[in-house]
């Protein structure tokens, strides 16, 4: 029994249909716990007032925006090396989720920045990096839409994802070099002295776990849809041939 068995679409459909209700339930419970805990049962920050509550959506969304791209990179590589269709379909399924997470991070950041920094938008390295990440998601999805042949589309988008990852990283460092920003450092790194205090950290961890589970649920659902779409296409083609 190896992990590659899940690359078989039939096996994937069976396993995911069994796992999906559990993952969905867990996602709803964890997300609600994290957000309700954060929203109703945490104190205000002495400097930021109640705006600190935005952290429970802003940070997890930003984390998922990046992790989603990392996941797409891995699954694209698996497609290029081992030619497993489920892998590349998972990448396709994840992209809109990652793009939405990027948008959430940008919007909540803008809304948060308005009272804190006195501006909706600044060309701060982190904000700029996320805007660039959004452009990469946009290009990746547009390429999927533009190519008719599914295998060519999978190859082209996977190559784009690899090259895009390198350039996204480059942009990150270029942008850091270009402008020093307003944004605070990492909120949750384990050895950081600027660690947020435990009162905020525990609900934040919960909320992050909730976002991970939500992402997993949506990707499973969407990958199942993509597999069905692919099978439908194959059946229609076979019918036309007959």
């Amino acid at each position: 029994m190896s992990i590659w068995e899940y690359a078989n679409p039939k096996k994937f459909m069976e396993t995911s249909s069994w796992a999906l209700p559990w993952v969905t339930g867990l996602a709803v419970v964890t997300l609600l716990t994290g957000l309700v805990w954060g929203f109703f049962f945490t104190p205000d920050d002495y400097r930021q007032g109640s705006t600190v509550k935005i952290i429970y959506i802003h940070v997890p969304a930003a984390m998922m925006a990046i992790n989603c791209w990392a996941m797409m990179l891995v699954t694209s590589l698996i497609w290029l090396v081992r030619r497993h269709h489920v892998s590349v379909l998972a990448a396709k399924a994840a992209a809109p989720v990652g793009m939405t997470m990027t948008l959430i991070a940008l919007f909540t950041g803008a809304i948060w920045g308005q009272p804190m920094w006195g501006t909706w938008w600044a060309w701060d390295p982190r904000l700029t990096s996320f805007l660039i990440l959004f452009l990469f998601y946009l290009g990746y999805l547009a390429l999927w839409e533009a190519v008719d042949d599914p295998d060519s589309a999978a190859d082209l988008t996977s190559v784009l994802c690899l090259v895009g990852s390198v350039f996204a990283l480059l942009s990150r460092y270029a942008v850091l070099f270009w402008n020093q920003g307003l944004h605070q450092g990492a909120s949750l790194s384990l050895d950081s002295k600027e660690h947020v205090s435990d009162v905020f950290a525990y609900p934040l961890w919960t909320s992050m776990a909730g976002f991970v589970l939500l992402f997993l649920t949506l990707v499973l659902l969407r990958t199942r849809t993509e597999i069905r779409a692919r099978r439908l296409r194959a059946l229609e083609a076979r019918e036309r041939m007959a």
């Binding site: 205000d44 109640s50 935005i54 919007f107 809304i111 948060w112």
Partner: peptide
């Protein structure tokens, strides 16, 4: 909960999300 003067900000962020 009392959101104070930042109520619109916090609620707006949650609403957008």
């Amino acid at each position: 909960v009392g959101l104070g003067k930042y109520a619109a900000t916090v609620l707006g962020a949650y609403a957008v999300t």
